[in-house]
């Protein structure tokens, strides 16, 4: 256990800090919306779906029906269908390991693990996801308690996630020394410009478009990237 956590901790640390602060922000937001201190923690433990959790709180507070909330959350999380792709060739052997890997595979854990220069063994990947999960839950608990005790609101904590994404994007470009992600992302987002879509649907459609662009690039311009292993 410790031998797995030791290498996982420095990998997970940046996301743990971001998750703790954003989790605390979620706890604060939910308690201020009238959820009490316990429900935000339950939501974080069961759902563990960042943006979707904020959406649930906002929609419940606005009196939306559970079916409406379910549809929006489903759409918001559609982008997740791509996340398992990089881990297919390095999946955990045990069923429990696979279940945990899938459950803990969030935006940030995905970004973090795919930015690594070497492929970590599955137990370390699972440990990274677990550390992030418990940081998110612990942050939510702290934020919920503070939200119950003090009427304060520090929205800037949520910006930690944007900063983390900016860092991860920078590292992705540095690691692969390719501007293809920038070009593919720029082209893919154009697909949704004429459409009136939610964030979740927009991510799903543009994600498919990005896959198409990268595939096209792969076919039309073979490079050494195509010759190596797929890890």
């Amino acid at each position: 256990m410790l031998s797995t956590l030791r290498p996982a901790l420095p990998i997970a640390a940046p996301v743990m800090v971001g998750y703790f602060t954003v989790g605390a922000t979620f706890g604060l937001t939910a308690t201020q919306a009238g959820f009490g201190w316990l429900w935000p923690v339950v939501i974080s433990l069961i759902q563990f779906a960042g943006a979707a959790q904020f959406m649930i709180v906002a929609m419940v507070a606005q009196g939306a029906a559970l079916t409406e909330i379910a549809l929006v959350v489903f759409l918001l999380n559609l982008r997740h269908v791509f996340y398992g792709l990089p881990f297919l060739n390095n999946r955990p052997r045990s069923l429990v390991g696979r279940i945990l890997m899938i459950f803990w595979l969030t935006d940030e854990t995905y970004s973090l693990l795919t930015t690594r220069t070497q492929t970590d063994p599955p137990p370390v990947q699972i440990a990274v996801g677990g550390l992030n999960y418990f940081s998110w839950a612990a942050g939510t608990l702290l934020g919920s308690i503070i939200g119950q005790l003090l009427p304060l609101q520090i929205d800037s904590f949520a910006f930690a996630l944007s900063a983390l994404f900016a860092i991860l994007l920078t590292e992705q470009i540095r690691a692969h020394r390719s501007v293809v992600p920038l070009v593919a992302g720029g082209l893919a987002v154009l697909v949704i410009v004429p459409l009136e879509v939610s964030f979740g649907i927009g991510m799903f459609i543009s994600g498919l478009a990005a896959i198409a662009v990268i595939t096209l690039w792969h076919v039309l311009r073979p490079t050494p990237l195509n010759k190596g292993n797929s890890s």
């Binding site: 390719s178 992600p181 992302g185």
Partner: peptide, 17 residues
């Protein structure tokens, strides 16, 4: 190729979308 290039693209798309 997707394994290498899709993650960065999706991260960028978080912002753009």
């Amino acid at each position: 190729t997707l394994n290498r290039l899709l993650p960065g693209t999706l991260i960028l798309l978080f912002f753009l979308v």
